[in-house]
Simulated assay, not measured.
Amino acid sequence: METFFNNLLEFFFILIGLQLIYTAYKVFINKSNTKRVGSALFWLDLGILFMLGKFIPPMVSGLLVVLLGVISLFRQFEISQFKPFKQEKLENDAKRFGNKIFIPVLSLAVISVLLAMTIKESSTSAIGVAAIVGVILAMAIFKSKPKEVIEESDRMIQTMGTSGILPQLLAALGAIFTIAGVGDVISQLIGGFVPEGNRLAGVIAYVLGMVVFTMIMGNGFAAFTVITAGVGLPFVIAQGADPAIAGALALTAGYCGTLLTPMAANFNVLPASLLEMKNPNGVIKEQVPVAVLMIIVHIALMYFWAF
């Protein structure tokens, strides 16, 4: 069963790669894009990585990733312009379908969670299965054709631009930091400020460390291993804190940092881009008060619950 779902995950990666290669083709034939060659190469490169990343040598994968950075560094990437939707049509569709528009989105969350809980081995590909079901439901509800699905997927990919790959890069960076021993360096730095044996100071350092490092990394999971190794273990858990409670609260504290950083592109940058907000940091601005309050709550909960 595990082998089946691992192969299924690889199938989803190939599907994503095919969509990205289609986007590369659409960008290349779009003469209104002044940097269509570089932009098309970017999406083609990314598509190859998704499709063949498991099969090509690590050195080749690394060079392809570097190429993505080179294209962006020399500003050879440009987001294509699309014809805006007619406001009248949008309003008519909203009245016509009402709350039905939420069915495919909600099914994505419900199906992925149920599948992961029912079949433990499916956790790696549960979201992919749920996404396929969600697309089928959307096509049934809105009477869409497969071509429309591909075209709108292309529109979304191009609208997101280079920020769409930021989560993958940051997750990889977190693994590199852990292997490089960044946690040990942070432990040494924090040790000079946190009084030995002071539980409250240790908790504050752990929570704020998770918040700040998540803001830098843009990914709470990437920050968790580094900060837990460097701060959580020596300054909180070693003083008698319950590892399960302290670790769980530390991870959700990292999510507070997610609310405060543009590095968390999939949460803060992409919505602003897709909604065409005037202020690219508008989402973050609205989340600051909630994030600050939740940081204080996390410090209190860890101090009183974990010990």
Rank of each mutant, 00 (worst) to 15 (best):
Q158W: 03
K100G: 03
L108M: 08
F102R: 07
L259Y: 03
L68A: 07
F224Y: 11
F97P: 00
P167K: 09
P280R: 09
H298M: 09
F267N: 15
V110H: 08
G17T: 04
A201K: 00
G174H: 11
I111D: 01
K285C: 05
I132V: 14
F28T: 02
G17M: 01
I79V: 15
Q188A: 04
G220K: 11
F11L: 12
E152D: 14
A205C: 02
F74A: 06
A223M: 10
V292E: 07
A248Q: 05
A250C: 04
L170V: 13
L259V: 04
T118G: 01
A223H: 11
E276F: 07
E151D: 13
G62K: 14
G38N: 07
G202L: 05
T34W: 03
I296D: 10
L166P: 03
T3R: 15
L115P: 03
F142C: 01
N99I: 08
G232E: 10
P84H: 10
V182H: 05
P104N: 03
R96D: 02
Q81A: 15
L270G: 06
W305S: 15
E276W: 09
G98M: 00
F193Y: 12
G164Y: 07
A241P: 03
V129G: 03
L15K: 08
M1A: 14
L275A: 15
Y303E: 08
L251F: 12
S80K: 12
V236Y: 02
A306P: 10
L233N: 13
I79G: 09
F235W: 04
S123M: 10
G164S: 15
F224S: 05
T3Q: 15
M51D: 09
E148V: 11
G161T: 02
L293H: 05
T228W: 00
A253Q: 02
P243F: 10
F11G: 10
I296K: 13
G98F: 02
I165F: 14
W305Q: 13
C256E: 06
I71F: 12
M302L: 06
I150Y: 01
A306W: 05
F102L: 14
F177M: 11
L249K: 08
Q239T: 04
S153E: 00
T258D: 10
L90W: 01
V297D: 04
S273H: 08
R75C: 05
G183L: 11
L15M: 12
A265C: 13
K120S: 14
V207Y: 02
T34S: 13
T214D: 05
I295C: 04
K31E: 15
N7W: 11
V65K: 07
F142T: 00
R96T: 04
L64K: 14
A175L: 14
F213T: 14
T214W: 07
A130K: 05
L63Y: 09
A238D: 08
L9G: 13
F177S: 03
L18C: 15
L108P: 01
M117W: 09
I56S: 07
L90Y: 02
F213P: 04
T118V: 06
T162G: 02
A306F: 08
G257H: 03
G161E: 02
F221Y: 12
E196D: 13
T228V: 00
D184I: 12
K143P: 00
K143I: 01
K95C: 03
A130F: 04
D154I: 07
C256L: 05
G183N: 10
F55H: 13
N219P: 09
L115Q: 04
T118K: 09
I101H: 07
G161Y: 02
L52C: 11
A272Y: 07
S122C: 11
L68G: 07
V135D: 05
